[in-house]
Amino acid sequence: MNNRLTNLPVYVVDDDQSVRESLAFLLEEYEFNVAVFSDGQHFLDNAALTQPGCVILDSRMPVLRGQQVHQHLRDNQSPLAVIYLTGHGDVPMAVDALQAGAVNFFQKPVNAEQLVAAINLALENSMQQLDKLASIDAYQSLTEREKDILGLIVAGKRNQKIADELCIAMRTVEVHRASLLKKFAAKTVAELAYIYGVLHS
């Protein structure tokens, strides 16, 4: 298993202590980095929301319901991936959760293997989400000129051609190209094009 992933935090948010602790016990046995919270607000206040990771949410909790916590995460563009684990699930609730971007939706009691698989998937998604969010940040920090040049680069045009179209010096285009690669942490134009694709998907 990828080390980078297992080191990511797995948050368990459940108002029921026995469920919370038993789940933590189980997941620690699977060598996840587990942190537990007894309610949604406590989790939102204390967890590293901007970092990748996975949160296992109970649906029916006092203070904040699972869905509300999920909504808060999305509103704040948190990279954290969400797995629902609830005592009272039904189909509409599951559909809503998945449409809102949850990785999976489980009913208690849950099969450990399925849960672990879902957590791994969630952590992976979370990493991707982090990258995507970073790319979005980078894209939004570009000047208009840089966005134009990025679009032309991704379209596969050469520097000379870009300089001609935009009526700027070829040198300027080269400087921008290097700057763009750096900003998107891309090594090649192909990688840059991939990120661009992800951003516009």
């Binding site: 029921d16 026995s18 602790e21 038993s22 789940l23 016990f25 005592g87 009691p109």
Partner: peptide, 10 residues
């Protein structure tokens, strides 16, 4: 169901 879930986890 809650303690049952916990038992299962354990």
């Amino acid at each position: 169901n809650q303690p049952l879930a916990a038992i299962r986890n354990y």
